[in-house]
Each structure stands twice: as C-alpha cells, then as structure tokens.
Design a protein around this nucleic acid. Structure first.
Lengths: 129, 129
DNA sequence: GTCAATGCAAAAACTTTGCAACATT
DNA sequence: AATGTTGCAAAGTTTTTGCATTGAC
C-alpha cells in the first residue's frame, strides 16, 4: 500500500523554494517559505524534505558541510563547497571514472556498492578577494 | 604563541583507543576509554578529538554517515561504509585520478581547491548473509 | 606556581516526533 | 468521510562550552 502524497500549499511552496535557490539548507528553505506562509513550522519543512527525498523528487547533498543541503536537480553531478562562505556550486565533470571506481571497490572489498559521494572543498572566487 | 599540549592520562588512552579500533565514533571511543578511566567525560573525549585533529595527529572521516568517525591512519586513503551496520573499511585505490579531478575542478569553477572527499556506500559481506 | 586539561552539567545546533486540529482527496 | 498533513512544542542526537577544580610541566 503506497501512500499518496497530497499537494498541500506548504509542499508546493517548499518545492518552489527548492527550485529558486541554489542548494539551500532546511533553514534557508524555511526562511524563504515563511515569506509566503508566515505560520509554517520548521517541522513541516523537515518532514516535507524527507518525504520528497524518499519519493525521489529532490536529493540531499553529501560532503557539503556540517548540515544538510538539498537539490532539485536530480541528474548525477558533483559539487564544490566554499570553506569560508559555504557556497555550493555544481561541477560539470564526467561521472564515468567514478563509476569505474565503484566497480573496482566492490571487487576489492566484497561490498555491494550502491552509491558513492564526492565533494570538493576550497575557497570560492568571491572569498579570495 | 603556540599552546603546548600536555600528555594527560586521558589523552594517552584516547589515542590508544583510536589505534585499537577501526574508524571509531566519539561515542565508541568514549565507551572504550571508560573501561580504563570510568570517570572520563564525553566532553573530554570530544575536546581531545578536536585538538588531535587540529594538530594533525588524527583525521576525521567524511562521507561516512550521520556522525563523525576518526582515524589514526593519516595516509591518504578512502573508505566504504556499510549502510546497514555502519562498518567502515579502508579501500586501496589510487588517489591519482582524484588529484587530476581536483585540478580540473579548480580550473572550471575558479575555486582554490584544498581538498576532496570521496566515500562509497553499500552492503558489507556480513550483512549480505 | 602557571596555565592547560578535566569533570560535570548546561546549552547549542540540527533534526525528529507526538498529538490534536485541519485540509486534501 | 477518510486519512494525509499541519503547527506547535517537546524531545532526540551529536557536539560544544562555561566554570571551578585538578594536574602536567
């Protein structure tokens, strides 16, 4: 019995916030959504993010710092995070060699590899100045 | 003015716990150290782990799950984490292609890349059975 | 003796959850 | 009408911190 998600005002606006921002954190989404729904609760934001992640409508970044960041871009791609300001930028690199590595790792360790996460860290152009 | 770390009984035993365990979490280290120092506090464990990390005596894993895990092996290497039992295993893969990627990422994004993190996730042999 | 380190407890930071009221289907 | 969803507040988890006391040098 699959549970059907209902399209509530809250969910709708959370999704719009996801699409309008770059890799926002839950807190950032909360702040954004509150401009249009002042009474929404942080709990609702977290619940929705988890559900949308489970249904595969959004993804959660890994290797991007201390707390969760979310992404409405579902294609396989990687990220750089600025160690100073926390800014996250998409990287256009070919996942092929990582895919190869997955296979190699599976063979070497006996694990059934289901995913990998890669993240780069450094200082962004703005923070260099 | 560099602060000199003092070798306390606590620090010594924490380091031994680090070396005797495989990628332990703070909580695991706490449990282990408490066998020999029953009155040590969790705060002391966290403080020491942070200090040892800062002095470069140990490293903190990334991409290894929800909470921090530590490593007394300082050489550059990567990890697989079991999604079921949380077990972490070292992987013997060549970091060369990742190093190349770092350069490519720097060029493409304008970031000064200082590090990258890579982690693989899957099901370990024990959990498959 | 000096000052880093400890134990303890309180708090911070992020996230989850219980529950009655409410809204979508 | 049925049940998924919300707001609120309380609580859970992991990690940090303030402070008086202790201990390494």
């Amino acid at each position: 019995m699959t549970t059907v998600l209902r399209m509530t005002k809250q969910r709708e606006i959370i999704l719009e916030a996801l699409e309008g921002a770059s890799h926002p954190s839950a807190e950032t989404i909360y702040a954004e959504v509150r401009k249009r729904l002042p009474h929404i609760s942080l709990g609702t934001v977290y619940r929705n993010l988890r559900q949308l992640k489970e249904t595969g409508d959004i993804s959660e970044l890994q290797c991007s710092g201390e707390y969760s960041r979310f992404d409405s871009n579902l294609s396989r791609h990687y990220h750089v995070t600025c160690s100073l300001c926390g800014m996250v930028m998409d990287i256009d690199i070919d996942p092929a060699s990582l895919k190869e590595m997955e296979e190699e790792v599976g063979k070497k360790t006996g694990f059934d590899i289901s995913s990998h996460c890669v993240g780069f860290h450094g200082i962004c152009q703005d923070c260099k100045g």
